[in-house]
């Protein structure tokens, strides 16, 4: 009799155990409830058993605060390192030597666009008219240099006009801030594209820098943005675009100037080795007269 009731008790307990084990493995809320209940009953006992002296609590709290601060600083460092790595691995940085810098101040100019201050200066080898890039593409050019900082004229500022090639064909154009001569209202934050020669831009065309002598102020081939709208043909609607002969459009910049953080300043390298002439195919034999 005793044996039988014992067996029944064991069976019941075993069934409950197995059920709870399965429930826990399946992530059922029942197991969580059991955990919470156990902690609620046992917690006060444990706290009384291990009653920590007050000064130790204060010490641990202070240490906790300090460690929390250290952890936050570490996380910030890691985030910045990853941004720097993204910049160094990015397309604009490829093939160039660059000085990494951080935006430490930004000013909104009265006529639109903005200029930013970087924490790198002439001590770091930065010269006026160096190109500034971010992971996404072109940011702007350096306009003034101090020993420890430099000011950058961001694309879209008044007076920042960049010679560009548009699309796969590489038609020449310029990109600048929206101007009064535009007959189309452009959204804030976009750039105005105007062709130098008759050309036909298409929405979605990539706009890259044309490049200048010694890569200053703008190195060649950097992504400036994407064409997002094309103005009506001026030859078809002369009344709407008086004084314009070529097409124009709207460009969305590749880099958002509002979220600039880690940027790179391209350091121009003087070319010391002259270019060697490239061999070409032999000319076809010409018919003798």
């Amino acid at each position: 009799m005793q044996q039988q009731s014992g067996r029944r008790l064991l069976g019941g307990l075993l069934a409950v155990t197995l059920a709870l084990l399965a429930a826990d493995l399946a992530g059922s809320p029942v197991a969580a409830a059991v955990r919470g209940g156990a902690a609620m009953v046992m917690g006060p006992v444990q706290r009384a058993l291990s009653a920590a002296p007050a000064d130790e609590v204060a010490r641990l709290e202070a240490e906790n605060l300090r460690l929390r601060g250290a952890a936050a600083a570490r996380a910030e460092d890691r985030a910045e390192l990853s941004r720097l790595r993204a910049l160094l691995d990015s397309d604009p940085a490829a093939g160039h030597t660059l000085v990494a810098a951080r935006v430490v101040a930004a000013g909104l100019s009265a006529v639109g666009g903005r200029s930013v201050t970087l924490d790198a200066g002439s001590r770091d080898g930065i010269k006026v008219d160096s190109t500034v890039v971010a992971a996404g593409g072109l940011v702007g050019r350096v306009v003034t240099v101090a020993p420890f900082t430099c000011d950058v004229q961001v694309l879209g500022s008044a007076g920042a006009v960049v010679g560009v090639r548009v699309g796969a064909a590489g038609q020449l154009a310029t990109v600048g801030p929206p101007t009064a001569s535009d007959r189309v209202v452009r959204r804030r934050g976009t750039l105005s594209l105007s062709f130098v020669q008759p050309g036909t831009p298409a929405v979605g065309d990539l706009v890259r820098t044309l490049g200048s002598v010694d890569d200053t102020p703008y190195a060649a081939g950097l992504l400036v943005g994407t064409v997002i709208a094309v103005d009506p043909d001026p030859s078809l609607t002369p009344t709407r675009s008086p004084g314009r002969l070529t097409r124009a459009g709207t460009v969305r910049p590749a880099v958002d100037p509002d979220t600039l953080d880690v940027v790179g300043v391209l350091v121009a390298r003087a070319r010391s080795v002259p270019r060697s002439p490239a061999p070409t195919r032999a000319a076809p034999p010409q018919a003798k007269p």
């Binding site: 155990t17 197995l18 709870l20 084990l21 493995l25 197991a31 902690a39 046992m42 444990q46």
Partner: peptide
């Protein structure tokens, strides 16, 4: 043992082994 915090995981394994 399982229910005295820190509560074991998965719940019930220690009970089976001790049994």
């Amino acid at each position: 043992v399982e229910l005295v915090p820190p509560v074991g995981s998965p719940l019930g394994l220690t009970a089976l082994v001790t049994m």
